[in-house]
């Protein structure tokens, strides 16, 4: 009886040492980081607002040059990648590791697809001479130049986040394959997912502001 009790105590002590981690704190840390990201992009959105008020007509003219279908396709790609991200987390929580890997790879493919569309979009703009000091840009009015400055800065910073997201999701893929992230330890994947959803969230605002308001 007494050995049994000691055994249980030793076991529980063992378990305590073994699970030396803080999922709650990890999640809190991720959210705090996301808040700083929100403030970073928030500042750029304020800049957009201030210049839009000043150059309302020129912003509308400039917005006509962006192709709605390209932005629209990218919106659908990002929204769908957000879904596949969630499905990957749900699959892992349901102990279906293969499905989790499948959905995670799908998410990465969508993310790369977003960057491919972005590449064609920016190439098209460069082709029309719309780049810093470019001939297509210098012909334009002050407001249009500011519009494209904001367009490149904000979608560029967003694109950088997409690339970082791809790196983060690939790291998660490796971690799952190495059994470091697994059904009883899914919070790293959840946190990577939170980052990915933030990228989606910012695009939800970027898309109408740059592509639709003309």
């Amino acid at each position: 009886m007494s050995t049994n009790a000691t055994h249980t105590a030793a076991e529980s002590h063992d378990a305590h040492v073994h699970v030396h981690r803080d999922d709650y704190g990890a999640k809190m840390g991720m959210w705090l980081f996301l808040f700083t990201e929100l403030l970073l992009f928030g500042g750029l959105f304020i800049l957009y607002m201030a210049y839009r008020v000043e150059y309302i007509q020129q912003f509308q003219i400039a917005a006509k040059e962006l192709k709605v279908y390209m932005g629209g396709v990218n919106t659908i790609i990002l929204l769908t990648s957000s879904l596949t991200m969630v499905l990957s987390i749900v699959a892992l929580q349901r102990k279906n590791v293969q499905a989790s890997i499948f959905w995670l790879v799908t998410t990465i493919v969508f993310a790369l697809g977003f960057m491919v569309v972005k590449y064609f979009e920016w190439s098209d703009k460069f082709h029309h001479g719309i780049y810093p000091k470019g001939p297509g840009l210098m012909d334009k009015s002050q407001g249009e130049i500011i519009f494209f400055g904001l367009y490149y800065t904000m979608t560029g910073l967003h694109g950088l986040h997409v690339i970082i997201g791809v790196g983060l999701l690939t790291a998660m893929l490796i971690q799952i394959k190495r059994n470091k992230v697994r059904p009883d330890r899914f919070v790293p994947l959840e946190n990577a997912g939170l980052y990915w959803h933030l990228v989606d969230l910012i695009w939800i605002f970027l898309f109408p502001l740059f592509y639709l308001l003309h």
Binding site: E11, S12, H16, Y24, R94, V187
Partner: peptide, 18 residues
Amino acid sequence: DISNTHNAHTDDGRIAHA
């Protein structure tokens, strides 16, 4: 002992459960 084991299992809510 029992409550201790239970505690170790839930780990004071530090380990996330789906």
